[in-house]
Design a protein around this nucleic acid. Sequence first.
DNA 1: CATGAATGAGATTTCATTCAT
DNA 2: AATGAATGAAATCTCATTCAT
Lengths: 210, 210, 210, 210
Amino acid sequence: MTEPAKSRAPAPSRIQRRNRKRILDAALDVFSQHGYRGATLDQIAESAGLSKPNILYYFAGKEEIHATLLHQLMDTWLEPLRQIDPEGEPLDEILTYMQRKLEMSQHFPRESRLFANEILQGAPRIGPLLDGELKPLFDASAAVIDGWSRAGAIASVDARHLIFSIWATTQHYADFDAQIGVLMGGDDATEGAGLFLTGLYRRALAPGAR
Amino acid sequence: MTEPAKSRAPAPSRIQRRNRKRILDAALDVFSQHGYRGATLDQIAESAGLSKPNILYYFAGKEEIHATLLHQLMDTWLEPLRQIDPEGEPLDEILTYMQRKLEMSQHFPRESRLFANEILQGAPRIGPLLDGELKPLFDASAAVIDGWSRAGAIASVDARHLIFSIWATTQHYADFDAQIGVLMGGDDATEGAGLFLTGLYRRALAPGAR
Amino acid sequence: MTEPAKSRAPAPSRIQRRNRKRILDAALDVFSQHGYRGATLDQIAESAGLSKPNILYYFAGKEEIHATLLHQLMDTWLEPLRQIDPEGEPLDEILTYMQRKLEMSQHFPRESRLFANEILQGAPRIGPLLDGELKPLFDASAAVIDGWSRAGAIASVDARHLIFSIWATTQHYADFDAQIGVLMGGDDATEGAGLFLTGLYRRALAPGAR
Amino acid sequence: MTEPAKSRAPAPSRIQRRNRKRILDAALDVFSQHGYRGATLDQIAESAGLSKPNILYYFAGKEEIHATLLHQLMDTWLEPLRQIDPEGEPLDEILTYMQRKLEMSQHFPRESRLFANEILQGAPRIGPLLDGELKPLFDASAAVIDGWSRAGAIASVDARHLIFSIWATTQHYADFDAQIGVLMGGDDATEGAGLFLTGLYRRALAPGAR
DNA sequence: CATGAATGAGATTTCATTCAT
DNA sequence: AATGAATGAAATCTCATTCAT
């Protein structure tokens, strides 16, 4: 007995799923490198190995592909923040959070650049998501950290700026990779970044530090 | 008593200077907000209050306007780095440098975003400048700071990553302003940023810190 | 029994072939009449009955259409020269060659004008073809004729200038048609041209003529 | 005693005459090389060493410069034809005419190309001149030559096609110079052309030739 | 006489999207 | 599910000409 067709939302076939993935992957490449306006459907189609009209069979338009990417991104992006354990050892929690963010930058540089591009241009397409998804989580996390700070478990800092600084320093390795590549010559920045940032935040957040 | 016109170099008239300034200012607006590809001459012309062909009377094309902005930017951008005094008090020098960079982000957010946009997309147009102008200065400054670090005048850090972190944290306030605006609600980030970063780097760089 | 499609080379569809032909035909009209710079894609599109972007769907740009025409032209253009038979009766061979060139002028005046336009402006786009394709054939043909001349089979002439004169006199009827139309009043120049040129070259090349 | 200003047509000053000459000379360069549509006022102004508006102070527009050149050209161009002496020795007269035309091509190649360009495009701007100036002279000259031909003073030829052939062969050395340069390698075509054409027409027109 | 400044009309080309199958 | 063909809208840039002095 086969399932009766309940809704008209056709269950996506394997091919459909595979093609959507291909398109999104190609689009991530292209959008993260050229920005929204600089990217063309031709480039995406070429990179995905599909025809242009076929791209538009799966997505209503350029905008929708971009929006889909940003939505998918958001979940991944916020995951580390969610994992901060208010009951954990404060300094460890923060350092671990920083480390996770750094790893995300290193493993998902395209996502980082896609996000940076969007914010840089005033978040014209992601604005609502920031307010709806990011802000509550941000506020909650900042409250936790502020609690630690006031309790003397870490140095006295403004939690919101602390979070900003962690975002900035970790994402920098993805977003400004072109500059880092030039300035580091042949040296790899990956390992040094982790060591440096760990030391930086450990010293800066050590409870009792002046 | 005015200077007699000695040289035959076609001294730009007052109108020329004014219009070039207008154009560059308008272009800075537009490029920093939409990126190179997203910006249109129409927008620039509109914003400059000049006709489109008139824009092209002053600059050979879109690319030249962009290049001019990036070149002008570079000088301003590197100035704080040049002002680090190898003979100064190490911690002060670094904190002052950070403070200057932060002020630049706050006073020249458009320039910061223009630069970020360019790097984000792989520095396709500014690449040579990075290698020719930025790298030597970067290497020299890093050497000075590394000297201080090895001498124990500041905590033991990798100077190159320290500089990256200063760039990242200070520029973040300009480049990610759209996000910060949402997350800070109505609060102004300006003052808090300075206090936070000063504290962060003071503690992290204090000599003798573990 | 049709050929099975074996190769994966993107065989141009019937529509493709038809449209490319239309475009090239329209472009030949326009280019031969207005020259490269004087021709516009608008005119070509209008004349081809296609939209302007559709023209650019088939050819990468104005330049490519022009180049395609010139390349196609070259083959046709050189055919009569290739047909000179070194073993044939010399005077006949030359007169037949002249006659063929004259017929080409009369049947393909647009091609002749396209070519003339290009050479007139210094062969900026066809230069390499002249050197690579035309010159070897020209040299070979001149050598044959020079052989005949030295052997006394025709009058003593410089073969290279003889060829130039044949080109000049025959192509003149296509290239300077506008002038000829005015000067001949209503009379048709076609028949007279053949008779005149045949007589001219027969007398001028007759062996033994002083 | 100076001339009283009689008419309001201001007598052209020395500077005016010099500048008009400069402009026409520059325009001849540019028009003959790029054709009417391909030429730009910028190029002409640059080549003349004058500003663009100043060009337009002397001539009402691009069209007028072109028209002026064509009118000036016509006189020079027709001069050799006028010099054919109906009372002279027929063969000499024709050979001398051919020689003069050839010299004109060699001394004034730009004029030849300007004219060729115009005719090639259907004589859109010189049409009336052909009908008004050239045709009467052409008809008269053809009548003279036809008289000689019928009288047996030269071989029996159609005078009109004879004139066309002389035009074609002589102008070819100016108009198709780019092609001739390639095909002659380093050799100079000047001298050979005269010898060849003299021989060609002498033999072809010798009275009594079959 | 001369020119720096400005522009409207138009040229080539790009690109997201739609059509037709 | 897929694609070759087609296009309207818009972007960059050119150029003859005009303005204002």
